[in-house]
């Protein structure tokens, strides 16, 4: 009965459906990012998202409309910075990330400090997700999973060794651009679930947990998805009944899965 009451709330339905697709996106892309030493790209792009949201709020525009193009351009900026200047990934991400957060602070200062709206984007609130955002998550998930299936071998090769992949005639630039843009859009969406400060957790924790099970590449993608979805679902349910902050609960559950996977690995 309690379960029925819980599920009958419209905002819970939206949160569970939206959270499912957001988790699936983050945990799938995360596998490629973690294995390519790009784990912190989510952090960098979420900081840019913070700056973009501040800009949106300043100009009284829907923050997503501002964030999406800016974060996509920033993702390409990180890629180009790495390519052209031969910087390490973390350095390139660090440059764009600090610029993003500095812009956010600067703009919010002009606007008279951090207001409640901007604060809510810092920590996210998936319970406030609307149907438009649920639909966007759904279609993006389908589209990105379709792209991953089509370009699976290319993504695997580039993840393993970019230079050899290039000599095998794989268009590394095209595949990299696709991966960076998918990450950018996912980060903007995930911001709604867990907020700017915790997006990285959704991108990193499910993949690193899945990697402990040695299940092959496809198996790792699948396990990562399952862990991501379970964490988000359990986080929403637990936060509803216990009155916990949802984003933080999702991240802590993700972390518990990671600890369990380490124990599992040690025992077996």
């Amino acid at each position: 009965m309690v379960a029925f009451d819980f599920i009958s709330h419209g905002f819970i339905q939206k949160a569970l459906i939206g959270g499912f697709f957001i988790a699936m996106l983050c945990s799938t892309l995360g596998v490629f990012l973690v294995l390519r030493n790009l784990s912190l790209i989510g952090d960098g792009l979420s900081h840019v998202t913070f700056g973009s949201v501040a800009m949106g709020l300043l100009f009284k525009l829907y923050p997503f409309y501002i964030a999406i193009p800016i974060v996509m351009v920033s993702a390409i900026g990180i890629m180009k910075l790495k390519e052209k200047t031969r910087l390490f990934s973390d350095t390139a991400i660090g440059i764009v990330s600090s610029l993003g957060i500095a812009s956010g602070v600067f703009i919010s200062s002009i606007a008279g400090g951090l207001n409640i709206d901007l604060f809510s984007y810092l920590f996210g609130n998936i319970l406030a997700i609307n149907w438009t955002e649920v639909l966007v998550s759904f279609f993006l998930s389908l589209f990105f999973i379709f792209l991953i299936i089509i370009f699976y071998q290319e993504l695997l090769f580039i993840t393993f060794d970019e230079e050899s992949a290039q000599v095998s005639g794989i268009n590394v630039k095209k595949i990299n651009t696709m991966l960076y843009l998918m990450t950018a859009l996912t980060v903007v969406l995930a911001m709604k679930a867990v907020g700017v400060l915790l997006v990285t957790a959704l991108l990193i924790l499910p993949p690193v947990t899945a990697l402990q099970f040695s299940m092959g590449f496809k198996g790792t993608l699948f396990i990562s998805c399952v862990i991501g979805v379970l964490s988000v679902t359990a986080g929403i349910i637990l936060s509803f009944f216990m009155d916990f902050p949802t984003g933080a609960t999702i991240v802590i559950i993700n972390f518990l899965f990671f600890v369990l996977s380490l124990l599992f690995k040690k025992i077996f």
């Binding site: 294995l35 390519r36 030493n37 071998q153 290319e154 695997l156 090769f157 993840t159 393993f160 060794d161 970019e162 230079e163 050899s164 992949a165 000599v167 095998s168 005639g169 794989i170 990697l211 402990q212 040695s214 299940m215 092959g216 590449f217 198996g219 790792t220």
Partner: peptide, 27 residues
């Protein structure tokens, strides 16, 4: 082509030997 160094560095890289050799056929 066999480069001096490959970018793969993670000992948890979840691909099997047969999957890695198969990458050589993609060209």
């Amino acid at each position: 082509y066999l480069p001096q160094k490959t970018s793969f560095s993670d000992n948890h890289f979840p691909a099997k030997v047969k999957e890695i050799v198969a990458l050589g056929l993609l060209s």
